[in-house]
Every structure is written in C-alpha cells, then in structure tokens.
Amino acid sequence: MPAASEPAYKEPGERQVRRAILLLWGDRFAFVAALYLLIVIFFALFGPWLLGDMATALNLRLRNAPPGSIDLGWEFILGADALGRSILARLIVASRNTMGIAAAAVALAMLCGGTLGLIAGYAGKWPGTIIMRLADILMSFPSLLLALLVLFVFEPGVKNVMIVLAITRIPIYLRTTRAEVLEIRERMFVTAARAMGAGSIRIVVRHVIPIVAPTLITIAAIDFAFVMLAESALSFLGVGIQPPEFTWGAMVALGRNYLGSAWWLAFWPGLAIMSTTLALNLLSNWARTATDPTQRWRLEVTDKQNG
C-alpha cells in the first residue's frame, strides 16, 4: 500500500481531505451520494429562507395540479399538492425539518446511549446491571406504541417527535458501546494506563471513546435512514409532525390519501426519503471500506484503473 508508506507532509489536514476525495472518486456511487447529500444539506440550511413563502402559498384552484409542466411556473414542475402549493418548494423547505429531526434524534440517541453504555461497561456490576435491564425494557417496548404513548402525553410537536424517535433508538447505541467497552477494558494499554495511576474519566476520554466512536458513527448513518422512516410511520398513524409544520414523512403520509388519484403528492417526498437513505447507506458502506485497511485497496485499485 503506497499511500501508507509515504512520509507525512506539513499540512496533514489538507492531505487527508485530498485523499478522502480520491477514495470517494474510487466509488462512483458513493461520490454521487455525497454530492446529493451536500445538496440536501444546502437546502436544509437555506431552503426555508429562500422558498419559505412559496411553500406555504395556497391556491385551491391549482389543487393536485399534475407534474411535468412549467405552464403554471417553474415551481410547479413537480406538481401541486392538495391545497395547490408547489411540491418542489415544499420538498426543499421540508428538508430542514426532516434532516433536523433525524439528525437531532440520532445525535441525542447516540449521546445518551453512548454515555449510558460507557457507564454500564465501566462503572462496575450494579450500575451496569440496572442500565442493561432498562435497555432491555426499552428494547422490548413496541416502538410505535412507545411513540404513541409519549406523544399522547406530550403534544406531537417537532421537538417531542424528535425526542420520541431518539428514545426508541437509545438501546442500540447503549449495547454497542457497552460491548466495546467491556472488550477494551481488558486490553493491555488500559490496564497499563490504570497501573500508571490514570483516573477513570481520563482513561475513558483518552483511550476508550476514540475506539468506540467510529462504530457508533457507522451505526448512526444507517439509523438516520431508520429515523426518517419511523417519523413517516408516525405521521401515517396521525401523531407525527402536524400541520402547519411539515416534513417529507408527513408529506408522504398526507399524500397517501391521494395515491389513487394524484400519485405525485406522495411520490416525490417518498423518492426524497428513499434517495437520502440510499445515499447515506452508500456513503457509510464506502466509509467502512475506506477505513478498513484490508479492504481499502478496492477503492484505490478502481481509482488507478479509471484514472
């Protein structure tokens, strides 16, 4: 592997980025996925600011206007929804809520699950047992039922939907973290660090977290997709994001009422969810290959062949 044997230069950061892009270029699917995600992120950041009014402008005469024509204006290229609003504008504006909820839910689940997992794995028998039993309870709790219960008690706003989704995902991170911590604990360097008098927190921060984090991030990429779908299922049951707020999931759920007469209402947001989850999965597959020393050659070989 030539890359590994090259000496380090002065700007290691820049080199790594260059190298990552090269590796990304090695997997065209992943490259397209990354581009797509960048566009989605751009829309999530600036969409509501650019098109917020257009996405909520009502025109009952354009109800369910079909896609594929710009006679009504470019914003109706994907058609209009049941209240005659531009589907394109709504897709773009909804990307903020959609991505925001998914990202926040996953981050929250990862943070809580990771912390609890560290404690369970590191803090000894009793806290560990209690935390694990709590995780079992949460895992065996039917997740839609849990979501309904919580959302019946608290109103189904953006914040609560996000918290509910996070709660249902916590056990995954908790168990993964604990399993890794249990293994790491016994490894030599931790034992050595402890022998040298390092405190528990210091060991966790310096030695354990850097090893656990990559695994959690890989899971998070896939979870992101899962959370978007779960949010959509909540909307199907009527407890997801409520108007006037909207997400892709809520758009699909509302559009399903029109699948027999105006398929485009549910099709485009469905496609957006699908493409985004697909892109995330492709990218995380790529990341797994790229960070695995025994597999990385696949990307590099392709690169040479094509380049």
């Binding site: 779908l229 959509s232 199907f236 999931g249 697909l278």
Partner: peptide, 17 residues
Amino acid sequence: NVISLAGASAPDFWVAI
C-alpha cells in the same frame, strides 16, 4: 446493493398502497 437498499428505504405504507 442499490435495489436492496432502495427497497429498505421506502416508507412501507407507501409501498403497500
């Protein structure tokens, strides 16, 4: 890869209807 992931990423009620 793409087909299996795409299938798994579609909202199920949408696929059903």
